[in-house]
Write a protein that binds this DNA or RNA. Structure first.
Length: 778
DNA sequence: TAGTTGGGTTTTTTT
DNA sequence: AACCCAACTA
């Protein structure tokens, strides 16, 4: 028997209940991935199901990859033909075969949020929509919601009658959809919606897939939206062997359309469904679980469950409040360093979680100062960076000339003297003849009123055509290197003297490595496949768990992960829960934040540290925030240090049940840093103390040096030095092409190259990379 | 056409 | 604070 013996009773039930609909309510850390992988193994090994008939859907490529790997480890041969993918790649795979049945080309391109915005900007201009009143982003998110709910432009129009605002949005929606179709492009939401549309209109296609997928499993079911639900429902309609796994307490994606009712109402849709609860947690200590349970039980409308563990009580949760965010960052860095020094854990055992990406910066800066290796997950997606998007636009243009957006992006990058008016004239010509922008460029000489600009357009077209013909014998790496060389993209960056040019070049090198890796993995790598893969990666996909670096990421990104030591930073009302959710009139919003807190707490295996600051700079203004209400929901006896006695007591606060004397007594035992009684916890979210720079709040940043390293550039942490040592040293006089003469004040090995600090006579202190700065010794 | 500057804005979370 | 955009200048 073997492999199933290690499962507990509930897990076994989850594995062996293979027929009919199954709802697996799996609390945090209850081993749901184990159940899923063993279930697949059981289907194949014991029931003799063909691997080809099994489908498992997750949300991220990372989760899919891990699941696939684990299944392969158990099953061995045959596992590679299981569909273990994300919703989005599943749909792309289907649409690549059948998009023509919906009037698209099968080699459609995928638009990201940036692309969507460009299209919408154009449409607003054409429709004369005042973007002060109705922002592009607002329209796009309305469209996104509509698509997530499977509402077509036509239906939207019908619903918009009598509502001016909705009518405007419906016009934009219609225009947007036809613009995308014209460019042979789909956005993320289209991928799902169009697949559903395909299934609903084409019985043959649906029938094929229904026949094929006899067993379907969906992970993170609580995060599915209506369109995804419909997709799954249609696929499972023939066999009804649908197993969904989720935890309503971890539903944190309402903002992108997740419909919590999908999991809460599963039994209504499938009355014959078997419901299995996994409540034993194998991850955290009892203390951590008690805290998580205490917080989440304040939510209404959840499927009740209580996690338990036999892992033992564990240590107290640490709580620390600081004067400002700098103090918080310093503490976290010091505490991580301390734990590593004392051998409690290594860097890879620690993670810092926060509500917003912007919070990463201060912590990052402090980690650099203390030399703590780290990785930041998220922020701007690697493939959304300007330099990467530019180069990808070249690849897209070479791959699919119908992608107007890509062509327009690069027509004047690097500068070719082609301006806005020329582009507008080409576009008019393209509209007139109903051809693509790129095809219009080919006929530059025919375009009236374009004057001498035509001379500039032809070389561009020739260049693209040359690339296309070279692709016959080129590998992708050859192509990208040729593009960089021919266009002089990197050369121009180097010459720009831009402070973050060095980072951009590093990113371009990274892109080349990714292309090389792609070519190594695939037998017959094509440009189209590469672009497709790139369109669907999330930041979290590239995180190596088990590396020896501290991970910094948002609470959202952390879902599904676990760490021995977790720091929750910025636990303040207004930061977390977010200000907008506090002022929202929909009580669901705060509940969603609370679920996020639950996710955060349950990431910790052994040790949880909660931090907050009294004062923090947010969007250029200094706010005073109260300790997060979620911290107050954690029973005081679970924590080693107490928040100050609150001035106000929320209805569900743990403090309420405590007598005043008790509060003072406990509070009196507070350890460092000492709290000032009755001073810190006044509920005054968003009080503005000062505008502009708060230099006095920066105790450990000398001379602004760290600031000039720039956010994106230090996201790699500490690594190997590849550049050679320059021919100057500390104390030498040097000269720089832009900043003039100065004295070298520091020279040290950086991530890639020597980092040199120069005190310029006229430009002040700068930190730069030696190879890039091209300093001349004088 | 390109580069600079000043003014206005900021959804938090992401496939 | 950081970003984006429109207006202005060379």
């Amino acid at each position: 028997m073997g492999i199933y013996d290690t499962l507990n009773e509930q897990q076994k039930k989850g594995v062996f209940t293979t027929e009919g609909p199954v709802l697996l309510l799996a609390g945090a850390g209850s081993g749901k991935t184990r159940v899923l992988t063993h279930r697949i193994a059981y289907l194949i090994d014991e029931l003799g199901v063909n691997a080809w008939n099994i489908m498992a859907i997750t949300f991220t490529n990372k989760a899919a990859g891990e699941m696939k790997e684990r299944v392969e480890n158990i099953v061995g041969v045959g596992a590679e033909s299981i569909w273990v993918t994300t919703f989005h790649s599943t749909c792309v795979r289907i649409l690549r075969r059948y998009a023509d049945r919906l009037g698209y080309d099968n080699n459609f391109t995928i638009y990201d949020t940036d692309d969507q915005k460009s299209v919408m900007k154009d449409i607003c201009k054409r429709l004369k929509i005042d973007t002060k009143m109705l922002k592009e982003r607002t329209i796009l998110s309305a469209i996104s919601s509509a698509k997530n709910e499977l509402v077509s432009p036509e239906e939207y129009t019908l619903n918009a009658v009598g509502d001016y605002r909705k009518q405007k949005i419906s016009q934009a929606y219609n225009e947007y959809q036809s613009a995308l179709k014209k460019s042979n492009a789909m956005d993320f939401d289209d991928l799902i919606m169009k697949t559903v549309e395909l299934f609903k209109t084409d019985g043959e296609v649906l029938g094929n897939y229904q026949k094929r997928f006899k067993y379907i499993m969906v992970d993170e079911y609580q995060d599915t939206n209506t369109a995804q639900f419909e997709l799954i429902r249609l696929l499972a309609d023939a066999h009804h062997n649908l197993c969904v796994v989720g935890d309503d307490d971890q539903s944190i994606y309402k903002f992108r359309g997740a419909n919590i009712r999908n999991i809460l109402d599963f039994e209504k849709v499938y009355p014959e469904a078997e419901v299995i609860r996994l409540e034993q947690n194998y991850r955290s200590t009892q203390t951590v679980l008690d805290a998580a349970n205490a917080v989440i039980c304040n939510n209404k409308g959840r499927k009740s469950k209580t996690l338990w563990t036999d892992k033992g009580e564990g240590g107290s949760i640490h709580f620390r409040q600081f004067e400002n965010a700098y103090g918080e960052a310093e503490f976290i860095a010091d505490d991580v360093a301390r734990k590593v020094r004392e051998g409690v854990t290594d860097y890879g055992g620690c993670a810092v979680l926060y509500r917003t990406n912007a919070q990463a910066r201060l912590i990052e800066e402090r980690f650099v100062v203390e030399g703590i290796p780290y990785n930041v997950v998220g922020g701007t997606n690697f493939y959304a960076r300007k330099e990467i998007k530019d180069l990808l636009a070249y690849l897209k243009t070479i791959d699919n000339g119908r992608d107007d957006l890509a062509v327009k992006r690069i027509i004047n990058v690097p500068k070719r003297g082609i301006g806005a008016s020329t582009i507008a004239k080409v576009q008019d010509y393209a509209d007139m003849w109903g051809i693509s922008f790129y095809d219009a460029l080919k006929r530059a000489d025919d375009i009236l009123g374009i004057g001498k600009s035509a001379v500039k357009l032809t070389p561009f077209v020739t260049m693209i055509q040359t690339f296309r013909s070279k692709l016959e014998f080129y590998g992708l790496e050859d192509l990208i290197r040729d593009i960089i060389k021919t266009t002089g993209y990197v050369t121009e960056l180097e010459a720009s003297g831009d402070e973050d040019a060095e980072n951009r070049i590093e990113n371009i090198d990274e892109l080349i490595s990714k292309i090389v890796a792609f070519e190594e993995i695939h037998d017959h790598p094509t440009l189209g496949e590469f672009l497709e893969e790139v369109a669907l990666v999330a930041d979290i996909d590239n995180v190596e768990t088990g590396s020896s670096k501290v991970l910094l990421m948002t609470l959202h990104s952390a879902k599904g992960l676990e760490f021995p030591h977790v720091y929750l930073a910025g636990m303040e009302d207004g930061v977390f829960p977010a200000y907008l959710s506090i002022v929202s009139d929909d009580p669901e919003d705060i509940e969603e934040e609370r679920r996020l807190a639950y996710v955060g707490i349950t990431r910790a295996k052994d040790d949880l540290t909660i931090c907050c600051a009294k004062m923090r700079m947010v969007r250029g203004e200094t706010q005073i925030n109260a300790i997060s209400r979620f911290v107050k929901e954690i029973p005081a006896e679970l924590m080693d240090n107490r928040p100050p006695a609150p001035r106000y007591v929320s209805a569900d606060s743990a403090f309420e049940s405590m007598s005043g004397d008790e509060q003072i007594k406990r509070y009196g035992f507070a350890q460092e840093p000492p709290y000032q009684a009755g001073n810190g916890a006044i509920s005054r979210p968003r009080a503005v103390l000062s505008k502009g720079t708060a230099a006095e709040n920066k105790p450990f940043i000398a001379g602004g040096g760290i600031g000039s390293l720039h956010g994106a550039g230090i996201s790699k942490g500490v690594g190997a030095v590849t550049g050679g040592k320059p021919d100057y040293d500390i104390g030498d006089r040097i000269s720089h092409i832009k900043y003039g003469k100065g004295t070298v004040t520091a020279l040290e090995p950086g991530p890639r190259d020597y980092k040199v600090t120069v005190d310029f006579d006229n430009a002040g202190q700068k930190i730069m990379y030696a190879a890039f700065a091209k300093l001349q010794k004088i």
